[in-house]
Write a protein that binds this DNA or RNA. Structure first.
Lengths: 338, 338
DNA sequence: CTGAAAGCGCTTACAG
DNA sequence: CTGAAAGCGCTTACAG
């Protein structure tokens, strides 16, 4: 049933029905109530494509993941939060996966040109990110999950990656650790650079010099955590503590420590950054893992919120947040063995 | 730039341009080439909302997750596969999250009435699933990930859950295990029922009687696996083997075994169902875990494919598949200790 | 507060 | 093989 038919059935004009249903003020309350009730009863819903064509709004927000393979646990938590928030405003999420950066760029061009989305969520930016420049040029509104540099201001939400890893490093240094290894993410991205800066800054505070053999990076997976830790443990002078960029890496690190006949927490201290996976709680690991904690799901919700505001006309430079990260000391970080 | 402007710029009618761009046959190859090239150069893309309104197709497929919180690692792998496949046909994925079953039902009604999607992916069906009946009534095409009973046939892809768990159970029985525990999923769903049936059938083959204290269920998370295993190990006569419904549960189970001062694989054998998470490989665990393996990502791709076919007019009853599951014996299943 | 009419940007019978 | 025109189902100035 379309608007015309519905309107005639309840003896009103299409105009009035349309206005009543979109919550415009210039309709009498009784009329609106009557329309809404009739819509419910008769099962009328505006055709979304027609609505979009008429308003020029897509009613959807896009997010593209590079490497279908990289759509992992972090993405899913983030998406869960994003979707929860956008649902409130009836905004759809349009998910695309691409393989390369060029494809990603092409995807944004396509989304913009075909007016398929009203805005886009960009994640894991590099320090100077092409994609940001592109979106600004295209005039496609966007919110960045992470930080970057650009001439024009843009909306973003980031966590305090510098502070998080600095505090973790400091905590270990205070416990007497001198050889602290660090498993970082892809070093092209801002978050990895910030974390590394935090790590180095805290080392310096304690008179320690960064040792490149103790700094490694890769995907945040169990497997990579395992491999990198095996390398660390094979060094002539292995670390007594490891900072892992994700709970996933921490799982692998702990496994490698055990395989080497050592005891995680006792022989090698562990701190992990915890994005808070409901199915993988650091308290439940053995030993309970000290973490820098910042729920990625909450970030997803907030970014959804920021996107909505952006579409309502708020200025990008008023939509910029950096969230603090909490260090939660548990059982996996003990004083260095004498 | 819209069609009219673009067409006039290249000196053709809107009709011809439209036909050339949608790949209709009745356009001269040279004309088509010229149009496509000009579109590329001038950056013209059809407005997707207008296209949809005119064709009556939404160009999107919906999937709804109950409990934003349940959007976990299984969902994300599945989505990765689905998205990879649908991208090929330019079909968007529309993700919704809801909290209750009523909300989910309402979501389908909304999607159908507003013509927001052309089809829907339904997952984790129960044995007689209301949602299936609803979608059939609404006339909204759908593909089910899993199996169910219904009067009218429908498209589905399921794995052989019965066979998978039966084989796992058999394998353990052959190794001499007599007390085999089973961590199952939500028992309302078909897959859990099938798995339980497989478990019981294989026990029976070996003259074993199911013991309800050894059959437990819950979410497929590390935490639940941990708790349930702690219960098992606290029994007067604890199991010598555990079958876990997911790698996530297996992680928790192994942790509980260790916490109890026992050794996974040696003291308590472990088999896990492995949906194949790229970041959590059973070979890399210690001990390497015996699994029933069936990649959920591949299932997502295939279901995307089936959805496309369904929209092309293939009959639901020609789109029904059950995938075999492979038992991969590794180190975590050893003969029972004397 | 309500309605008639134009317009959003496409597709697609129909005619040539 | 190409084009003029109607139609998809809404929204929204404009007029009353």
């Amino acid at each position: 049933m379309n608007l015309k038919e519905f309107a005639s059935r309840i003896g009103l004009s299409a105009t009035t029905v349309s206005r009543a249903m979109s919550g415009y003020p210039e309709v009498r309350p009784e009329t609106r109530a009557r329309v809404l009730e009739a819509a419910e009863t008769l099962g009328y819903r505006p055709n979304i494509s027609a609505q979009r064509l008429a308003t020029g709004r897509a009613g959807a927000i896009g997010i593209v993941f590079q490497g279908g393979g990289r759509f992992g646990p972090h993405s899913s938590e983030f998406m869960g939060g994003l979707s929860t928030r956008l649902q409130r405003d009836g905004i759809d999420i349009l998910v695309s996966t691409v393989e390369t950066e060029e494809e990603e760029i092409a995807a944004y061009r396509r989304l913009a040109a075909s007016k398929r989305v009203d805005a886009v969520i960009l994640h894991t930016p590099t320090c100077r990110d092409k994609r940001i420049a592109l979106l600004q040029t295209l005039g496609l509104p966007f919110v960045v999950h992470g930080r970057s540099e650009a001439k024009k201001p843009f909306a973003f939400l980031d966590i305090d990656n510098f502070g998080a890893i600095a505090e973790a490093t400091r905590h270990l240094a205070v416990l007497g650790h001198r050889r602290i290894a660090f498993i970082n993410g892809d070093t092209a991205s801002t978050f990895a650079r910030d974390r590394q800066d935090g790590y180095c800054a805290a080392l310096a505070e304690h008179g320690l010099t960064p040792d490149s053999t103790l700094m490694s990076h890769g995907e945040f997976t169990d497997e990579t955590g395992f491999r990198l830790t095996q390398c660390f443990l094979g060094l002539p002078s292995p670390p007594t503590a490891i900072i892992a960029g994700s709970m996933m890496s921490a799982l692998g690190a702990m496994r490698a420590i055990r395989v080497a006949g050592l005891s995680p927490g006792t022989d090698v201290a562990i701190v992990a950054h915890d994005d808070v996976f409901p199915y993988l709680s650091p308290e439940n690991l053995v030993p309970a893992v000290t973490t820098t904690q910042s729920p990625i799901r909450a970030a997803g919700e907030r970014i959804g919120d920021m996107a909505v505001r952006l579409l309502q006309g708020e200025e990008p430079d008023s939509l910029q947040e950096v969230w603090p990260v909490e260090l939660i000391v548990r059982d996996s970080t003990r004083p260095v063995l004498a």
